[in-house]
Design a protein around this nucleic acid. Sequence first.
RNA 1: GGCCCGUUGGUCAAGGGGUUAAGACGCAUCCCUUUCACGGAUGAAUCACGAGUUCGAUUCUCGUACGGGCUACCA
Length: 390
Amino acid sequence: MRESFRTPQNPSPQYDHTVRTKMRNSITLPEAEVQKLLSENVKHVIRIKMPESETVQFTDLIRGTLSFNTSLTDDKVLLKADGMPTYHLAVVVDDFLMQITHVFRGEEWLPSAPVHVLLWKYLFGMDAMPQWAHLPLILGPNGKLSKRDGAKYGFPVFAMNWTDPATGELTEGFREKGFLPEAFINLLAVLGWNDGTEQEIFTKAEMIGKFSLERIHSGGAKFDYEKAKWFNHEWIKRLSAAALRQEVKPVLLKKGIDIPDEHQLDKVIALIKDRCQLLNDFVEQGYFFFSVPEKFDVEAVKPKWNEAKQLFFAELVRHFELISSWNEHALESEFKEMAAVHKIKPGELLLPFRIMLVGGKFGPGVFPVAELLGKQETISRIKHFLELLK
RNA sequence: GGCCCGUUGGUCAAGGGGUUAAGACGCAUCCCUUUCACGGAUGAAUCACGAGUUCGAUUCUCGUACGGGCUACCA
């Protein structure tokens, strides 16, 4: 039928009051014929017969009063030929049975709302009908956000990993990408809603207290992955090391990083969390605390390396060995005093020292790093690097 | 094509007849940091268009344009 009515002007013909009298159905067939077919169990579908021209009006909690003319919506299939109900029938019956009071769904359901309202009227009465709220859509780079967008643009679209049962294709979730649950809920809540103040970071408790239907936008909101990462970064910065530990530890373990001491881990987390946007960033920002760096950026040091510096570090090792209270302040003053004695600017020495400890031009302050690494490991890395330079 | 919903910087957005039209992300510059971040400061950038109502429209009304959704025996 769809095919025969399709024209260039109307690419999607409807099954409505204008065509139902031309179809082979219980309206056009003689009653006796209908009964006969029924008794023979001939496959058939059951549709809703939309009124020819009525206005269906209802209140949407977000958009206000909405009205539709029934002549424009088609006779939706309610029961399929295999006996299974379609969503239209199922959702109404299910909501009635569960005594649902409020229906929150995406804006894409708006066009079928009149069908559902009519079904409520016909089946259970308008008094039992829940209140409707059609939420704005989350948009991707082109239109409604779809799981395809995730693969296409490199950001997650589902909360957690999802494997398409049909194709076996895996879509990486926010969780696996390294997002905190707090951040995920937060970023979703403020996509299309705000509390009217400048606050953007909300705890779950705050959101429960402040969320209001009235302040939900009616227009769709485009998802911005950069801002999503910002939310996660904010949450990482705010959460304590102890709170972060349960999320960070599995990530590190999964990368084969050995964590013998949780207190040590907490200190590492506290030191590096400000520079981690996603949980996975803890790996590259922190792995060198647990094992010797895989490679050292020797090239960054070599050009400016000389005998004086070689001597400085050799002596630094001897001085460090004698330090009784191993903390960043003691290390820093020792380091700087020695630099003065050797008449080398500390700036000339700091970068090589950093690379000896962490492997490259990144990471937290060198002295806190050295403190956390401990005397033995710090000295061993200096010696190791001095060997590399030869 | 038809129907429905929408439209404030690139993005998320506050505001709602008279404002220098908030703030955030991102971007740029600078400060701090003897790395990279964090942090701080500054800057560029916006009311889709046209009528109407009005002393005055970003704000109200109507059109147009644009965007999105729906148009399956999917949900």
